[in-house]
């Protein structure tokens, strides 16, 4: 039984993905499928809400890495919000704040999409 799930919501044309549980090499394919679903629906403005994400390993981080360039090439972005401190530490360990907008709250991320005329 997988201890990970992705919930889909939207705010205007921003697609919000609510990540819940533990994201590892076993569950990373579920996040990948969720991002592919967004792409399939031409939704390239993706907001990751990590408030219920309790763990992430490099396999989970790798999914963001694998899609970010393609999404940006298509005029979109992946912004990451509301991470638990211990999960943020993992993003930080690999230098992700250099490459991604990682913000404190979902509202901050929505504001960033708005200010970039997304």
């Amino acid at each position: 039984m997988s201890n990970f799930s992705v919930g889909f919501r939207s705010s205007g044309h921003i697609q919000i993905l609510d990540l819940k549980g533990e994201l590892d090499a076993h569950t990373a394919s579920e996040l990948e499928a969720a991002i592919q679903k967004c792409q399939g629906n031409n939704q390239v403005h993706i907001l990751i809400n990590g408030s219920s994400l309790m763990y992430i390993s490099s396999a989970g981080l790798g999914v963001f890495m694998a899609y970010i360039e393609e999404i940006r090439e298509n005029g979109g972005d992946i912004k990451i919000a509301a991470l638990q401190p211990k999960v943020y530490n993992v993003f930080d360990l690999l230098g992700f704040p250099m490459l991604f907008d990682i913000v404190d709250s979902e509202d901050d991320a929505l504001g960033k999409f708005e200010s970039s005329n997304a």
Binding site: S58, L61, V63, E69
Partner: peptide, 9 residues
């Protein structure tokens, strides 16, 4: 990021 690889960390 540029190579769109998912692993190696």
């Amino acid at each position: 990021a540029k190579s769109k690889k998912a692993g190696g960390f």
